[in-house]
Amino acid sequence: MYAFDYVRPASLADAVKALGASEENRPLAGGQTLIPTMKQRLAMPATLIDLAGIAELKGVRRDGNAIVIGAMTTHADVAGNADVKAAIPALAALAGGIGDPHVRNSGTIGGSVANNDPAADYPAAVLALNATIITTTREIPADSYFTGMFKTALQPGELIKAIRFPIGAKAAYSKFEQRASRYALVGVFVAHTGAGVRVAVTGSGAGGVFRSAPLEAALAKGFSVDALKGAVVPSTGLLSDIHGSAEYRASVIPVIAERAVAAAR
């Protein structure tokens, strides 16, 4: 790999300062995306600011009617956390289905949500559950956070501190995975609350994760598998790649949505 510098600050304030020192600096979380990207020189940060030394970024806490997950909490820790399993089982199950066990022991929720890979799992949960991204400068609602493929509302120098997920939705995530990478070819997260139904689709959008208006409209009439019968998802705006065409994804999305609705609890 090319030469770079590395620091591991012990406080969030020091991390923000180190990050702000140069536009070439980048935060390092689990490294499961960033290190492979650096090996290929698709990213070439001058200094990596490792967030692993900042205690306040780690762990899960219940805060009233929400679960707050620190940015540096690993996928394995979310999957195994008793509070998450009890309050939002769909979220624990999603975390337990990311990649493989070793990726889950290193990769973090903050890294995944900051990266906004169009095939990543967490963005679907964040969007469907109407979560809030808590950063070093503000709170960003899910609906205005994901701005395109690998793009987010985060500004340079802004760090994700935690993500707050409201409790109470009847929810599930179903993923049709790409067999080699285990990323989502089509992933659908459904969430049903008193305020309505939200359906987020990952792995499929040319602009990254998105809410499906036709599926939400169908489920608003009744949150059941039957309500989805005949629902049509247009192929415009969907990804076409070696794994599947936009038309293919458009026909798979309602099927995966049915599975998610059937599993919701």
Binding site: Y6, R8, G31, P36, H102, N105, S106
Partner: peptide, 18 residues
Amino acid sequence: VVHVNGHAIKSCTTLAVQ
């Protein structure tokens, strides 16, 4: 794969400094 603090991780995707 090796164990770091008791957890299996991929040592090709971890920096020695980490």
